[in-house]
């Protein structure tokens, strides 16, 4: 479903998104005060230009819920086992109530994270507390991608998929 984004999510990145990742959503309010909330599931769309992300339904947790269609957002996704990090910039397309597929996405995202958590010194039982159990889905069109892996190349822009 094309939503006006740029093709920035190739097959390799799609696999990356389904790994043991920590994913965060950045938003900004009308006064340009930035906020960040944990993403509890992320799925690339077939058009390679948008993503469906899950955030806490509790608006107290996810101030991101105040983001309106057309607002700018940032998505930072990091593989917790090797710190490879990618950051997309994009815009909100729409909000959706969670579907059964979203709940499967939530469970898979959390379980993959928790399975890898002990390998990086995290307590998997406690780390579950970092994730919401009730979510809403946010559709984001992406328009820029940056390598955010810690190191001298952090911030390097990655060009669109040919």
């Amino acid at each position: 479903m094309p939503v006006g984004g740029t093709r920035l999510i190739d097959d390799e990145v799609r696999v990356f998104l389904q790994g043991p990742v920590s994913a965060m959503l950045g938003t900004a309010d009308g006064l340009h005060v930035a906020d960040v909330t944990r993403i509890a599931g992320v799925l690339a769309s077939d058009d390679q230009a948008s993503m469906r992300v899950l955030v806490a339904a509790n608006a107290t947790v996810a101030r991101a819920n105040a983001a309106q269609p057309g607002d700018a957002v940032a998505l930072l996704v990091t593989d917790i086992t090797n710190y490879r990090s990618l950051q997309w910039k994009g815009t909100v397309v729409a909000w959706h109530e969670p579907t059964p597929g979203d709940l499967t996405l939530l469970d898979g995202h959390v379980e993959r994270f928790l399975a890898a958590a002990p390998t990086v010194g995290l307590d998997a039982t406690k780390a579950r507390r970092c994730f919401p159990s009730d979510v809403v889905a946010l559709e984001v069109a992406v328009n820029a991608l940056f390598d955010q892996t810690p190191g001298p190349d952090a911030g390097r822009r990655i060009e669109q998929t040919p």
């Binding site: 900004a28 930035a34 940032a74 990090s85």
Partner: peptide
């Protein structure tokens, strides 16, 4: 999370 002048957020670890 920081925000640019044009309202675009940026995230960093």
């Amino acid at each position: 999370a920081t925000c640019s002048e044009d309202g675009t957020p940026n995230l960093v670890h």
